[in-house]
Design a protein around this nucleic acid. Structure first.
Length: 595
RNA sequence: GGGGCCGUAGCUCAAUUGGUUAGAGUACCGGACUGUCAAUCCGGUGGUUGCGGGUUCGAAUCCCGUCGGCCUCGCCA
């Protein structure tokens, strides 16, 4: 008689010494088999863990025969009695004090040998894992990741629900908008020649919810951007998108801090201290060279422009003479900084558009610190002054960078993060969460000779900086805020413009004419006409939160069915060509050669 | 679009740098085995060296092209 697999008494990770003597019924996958002829062990796995099942003639001779034919990933259901393992306990698994004597066994589904071992220590390539993602996801580590993802998503929903937010869905088939990332387009069949765009974010819709009087909105929503992929960028990704009415920036940040605190508590059991530290954009750039500083380690940037401006070293003279800066990073632990390592850093800087990174090593001289190697001969007379300014001590290495402020920030940020890795300065299990505030409203693109929104065009300028829009727009700060965790941007948001005249002035500065603005954003601008409350919000990258908290190296590890770098799904093969009839219905002709 | 790394058995890798029959571990198949913990022991099957072309007496190895995967710059309001 078949074993009723729909009546499991326990999961495979649940049994303990306290269950000894009980009759149990378990189902799952064969993790491994150890066939001793007259006796056989089956490790039975489900998402909760592993239980060892022992088959022997005393339990059931027929079941032993069947058990000896089992192979990895066969799906079975067993009945038996929990017994103590006595002196044979396995301390490596939580159920290791007990085993189940197999008294009945049904094979529910025979498995072909899998293309790779279903285990946390599998050595299969990512390519193979993605092709057979359903097997990859069966691995315990992936089960943990996606269950943590669920916990985070549920925490977010519960938190915002408890705070009076309402979740409302926004369209996926929507309107292509000019600025920002490249849109994914969807052709219209009933209006041939016209296209929908998949949303890059529900930004405008959530603002209209505020106009509509919903007061507080939060949605976990998919967003789409057709740009090149990276380890931390997928073409479709998930955001927690939220918006609040009648608030200032502080109110949004306080609300988000509560959510972040709940996420850390529920996902990792960690109590975060709030309120979180805040840093201005300018301070972040000055000290770390990046608007998302990793504050888990030192190696801060230090300005020595005034000290070295007279030095006979062409790159320094050029930078100092043309309004640029010379900054440096002081690193201790010089033993690891061999010639090979510092030369490697120079190559990396060249690889991202720079020239290199000149260095000196600090030594102890009779009359104070001296410099050696690198550009020491140019700086020797200033050794004492530079060490006094920067705190460099004998044995330290100083990495210099001359250039424009932006160049120095970009390259020294790279040097700083690489040095932290090389010198192993990044503490494990530390979570540095902070706000970066006071972003510039706009940044100038010298190539395109025009202004771009730092955040997005609906971000409000600071009230006291509104007059600067007409005089020095580069100095106008915005009511934007970014949440940064260990050097990664986790969320970004702002207070929005709710006055049409201010919105019009910002559009003008961005080179968007009234006519163009009306054409592209009329649905927002019209909305703002009819009584828009002051409002603001934020968006979290949910995938990135999971990736960080689960300590996974790639976003692909926290998305169930991710795309490769060329935006292909290795499981389904998408994207694929379509039938000529489908293109006909959409009035489309493909210029690409047949695949 | 640019730079870099990689592709050999189902899987992970090796092959003395151009040399004659492409190996190992694991998986799989067969056998032995009543206390294993990724069981062990014995035996066996398994190859379009990503694909196409070229150089050569001879190519996994060198050259050209192409396909695929990864990292990265540009790009990502």
């Amino acid at each position: 008689m078949a074993i009723p697999y729909n009546r499991r008494t326990h999961k495979c990770g649940e049994l303990r010494a306290a269950h000894v003597g009980q009759k149990v019924r378990l189902a799952g996958w064969v993790d491994s088999y150890r066939d001793h002829g007259g006796m056989a062990f089956i490790d039975l796995r489900d998402y909760t863990g592993i239980t060892q099942v022992r088959f022997n003639p005393e339990g059931n001779a027929a079941a032993l025969e069947l058990a000896r034919s089992l192979r990895a990933e066969d799906v079975i259901v067993i009945e038996g009695t929990v017994v103590s393992r006595g002196t044979n306990i396995n301390p490596r698994i939580p159920t290791g004090e007990i085993e189940v004597i197999g008294e009945a066994l049904d094979l529910l589904s025979k498995a072909e040998p899998p293309p790779f071992e279903i285990s946390d220590r599998t050595d299969a390539s990512e390519e193979l894992r993605l092709k057979h993602r359903y097997l990859d996801l069966r691995r315990p580590v992936m089960q943990r990741v996606f269950r943590m993802r669920h916990v985070i998503a549920k925490t977010i929903r519960d938190y915002f629900d408890a705070n009076g937010f309402v979740e409302i869905e926004t369209p996926f088939l929507t309107k292509s908008t000019p600025e920002g990332a490249r849109d994914y387009l969807v052709p219209s069949r009933v209006r041939q020649g016209s296209f929908y765009a998949l949303p890059q974010s529900p930004q405008i819709f959530k603002q209209l919810f505020m106009v509509a009087g919903f007061d507080r909105y939060a949605q976990i929503v998919r967003c789409f951007r057709d740009e090149d992929l990276r380890a931390d960028r997928q073409p479709e990704f998930t955001q927690l998108d939220m918006e609040m009415s009648f608030v200032q920036a502080d109110d949004v940040m306080t609300m988000v801090e509560g959510c972040a605190k709940a996420i850390f508590k529920n996902a990792l059991g960690i109590d975060m201290t709030t309120p979180l530290p805040r840093m201005t954009y300018q301070e972040a750039m000055d000290r770390f060279g990046i608007d998302r500083p990793d504050t888990r380690f030192g190696l801060e940037l230090q300005d020595v422009t005034d000290l070295v401006r007279g030095v006979e070293f062409a790159p320094f003279k050029e930078a100092a003479g043309s309004g640029g800066v010379i900054k440096c990073i002081v690193a201790s632990g010089g033993e690891a900084l061999t010639r090979k390592v510092t030369d490697g850093l120079t190559e990396e800087i060249k690889g991202i558009g720079g020239v290199g990174v000149p260095i000196v090593k600090v030594a102890a001289g009779d009359a104070g610190p001296t410099f050696a190697t690198g550009i020491a001969k140019h700086l020797e007379p200033l050794a004492a002054a530079i060490c006094a300014r920067t705190g460099a001590k004998p044995g330290d290495t100083i990495f210099f960078m001359p250039g424009t402020y932006d160049e120095v920030c970009k390259y020294l940020h790279h040097v700083r993060t690489r040095l932290a890795e090389i010198l192993k300065l990044i503490p494990e299990n530390r979570w540095d969460l902070l706000w970066v505030v006071d972003f510039p409203l706009m940044t100038y693109d010298p190539d395109e000779k025009r202004w771009f929104s730092t955040h997005h065009p609906f971000t409000a300028p600071m009230d006291e900086d509104i007059p600067l829009l007409d005089t020095e727009p580069n100095k106008a700060r915005s009511k934007a805020y970014d949440l940064v965790l260990n050097g990664t941007e986790m969320a970004g948001g702002s207070i929005r413009i709710h006055q049409r005249d201010v919105q019009a002035r910002v559009f003008n500065l961005l080179g968007i004419s009234d006519e163009e603005a009306q054409l592209k954003f009329s649905f927002l601008l019209d909305g703002l006409k009819y009584g828009a409350p002051p409002h603001g919000g934020i968006a979290f990258g949910l995938d990135r939160w999971v990736m960080m908290l689960a300590k996974m190296p790639s976003l692909r590890d926290v998305v169930a069915f991710p795309k490769t770098q060329r935006a292909v799904c290795l499981l389904t093969g998408a994207p694929t060509p379509v039938a000529a009839k489908q293109l006909d219905e959409l009035a489309l002709i493909s210029k690409a050669p047949p695949a």
